[in-house]
Amino acid sequence: MQHSNTQDTLVGLFVAAGIAGLFFLSLKASNLSSITQKDSFMVSARFENSDGLKVKSAVSAAGVKVGQVASIELDPTTYQSVVTMAIDAKYNNLPDDTTASIFTAGLLGEKYVNLEPGGSDTYLANNSAIDITQPAIILEKVIGQFLFKAAEEKK
């Protein structure tokens, strides 16, 4: 058993470097910092269709990310999609007549929820609902309608 101080120091440095690497990956290279530190409040919205939207999809307003989708469920009576969003607590001044729409980032990109603030004086709070919504645009349907219309006009 060699009791060597340099060896112990190197072991210490190695462990420190390894842990630093793991911390770096967690904090700098992933979304850990955005998951944990922020308080948020829940807002729900009903959509006719939420095709392509997933849990953790972004919620943004005017291009700024303000929260993420927390859950997506089907309402058993109205057959609407109920999307619950976690909005960062610091954005507590969104008016209650805000419009929620499901947009696509780019032509083939990810779906996200876009919030368009209205003009009301009362703000969205925890567990409040957004009433004005616009469903996801389904590309196949749009193309289908377009073709159908084109065929009608030809007749």
Binding site: F14, G18, G21, F24
Partner: peptide, 15 residues
């Protein structure tokens, strides 16, 4: 104990 530390170093340095 060493392997996760080494993998962490590898990924960090790689990035």
């Amino acid at each position: 104990l060493s392997m996760p530390l080494l993998a962490g170093v590898f990924s960090t340095i790689g990035i």
